[in-house]
Computed example of a mutant assay.
Amino acid sequence: MTFTKTATAALALFAVAGAALAANPMVGGAPMLEERNIVENAVNSADHTTLVAAVQAAGLVETLQSDGPFTVFAPVNAAFEALPAGTVETLLMPENKGMLTKVLTAHVVAGDWSSADIARMARASADGFYHFNAVSGDALSAQARGQNLYIYDESGNAGRITISDVKQSNGVIHVVDIVLVPK
């Protein structure tokens, strides 16, 4: 009888632990652990090596490791590759650190915003868009289309959130398929 109760308790604990591990999606082939901060998780994603290099070049590592909370729309490497030739290299030059910082902070919003929260705000608005500002001061908008959520930059370019609600110790990451470009 004791073995059965112990086995049942162990299975229940395993199920809870498995559900907790399954709660956060894998990103770039790596597990994203909720107890890690945004930078600690991003460096493990094979899909975010360009973003990590840019964050380092801009000197934003310490900021994105702070308490936050932050919501980060994290462009994948392919999004950076889709920019005009030479753009990334130019942004990574030390003399362009200010512009790089502006571009990167146009992907960060204060607070911990789930995709459900953003979609709900967009659906509730008169024009179908939730309008908000990045920490850079640049305007962003979100639109829910069916099951998809899109983030628009100031130029009207739309990026689809491909992986949402990646919980971090200091916020949340939503993976996007474009680089949001401020004006």
Rank of each mutant, 00 (worst) to 15 (best):
F70P: 10
L104S: 05
E34H: 12
A158I: 05
A119K: 13
G28K: 08
R123A: 10
K5E: 11
V172Y: 09
Y152E: 01
V181M: 06
A126N: 05
L51R: 14
T8E: 13
E89I: 03
V43L: 14
T105G: 02
A158W: 03
A79L: 12
P69N: 15
E89V: 05
A116R: 13
M121G: 08
N37Q: 01
A12N: 13
P182L: 01
V181S: 00
M26H: 09
G111W: 14
M32Q: 11
P25T: 11
A19G: 03
E154N: 00
G98C: 08
A134Y: 00
H48D: 03
S164N: 13
H107C: 10
A9G: 09
K97F: 01
G171N: 10
A142W: 03
K97D: 01
S164W: 09
L100Y: 09
E40P: 02
L92M: 14
A139E: 00
Y130L: 05
T71A: 07
T101C: 04
P94K: 06
L180Y: 00
N24K: 02
T50Q: 04
T2L: 15
V135K: 08
D153K: 00
M93D: 12
L11E: 04
G86V: 08
Q147V: 15
A122P: 09
S125I: 05
L60I: 10
T6R: 13
F70R: 12
L33A: 13
V135Y: 11
A30M: 10
L100A: 04
V43Y: 08
P84E: 04
D47I: 07
V52I: 15
K167L: 09
L92I: 08
I118M: 15
G29S: 08
T2V: 13
L92K: 13
A57I: 11
L64P: 07
D47N: 11
V72T: 13
T162F: 10
A82M: 04
V76K: 07
P182D: 00
T6G: 09
D177C: 04
A142S: 06
L92P: 12
F80I: 05
Q56F: 07
M121H: 14
E154Y: 00
N157S: 12
L104C: 07
A158F: 05
D47R: 06
A58D: 05
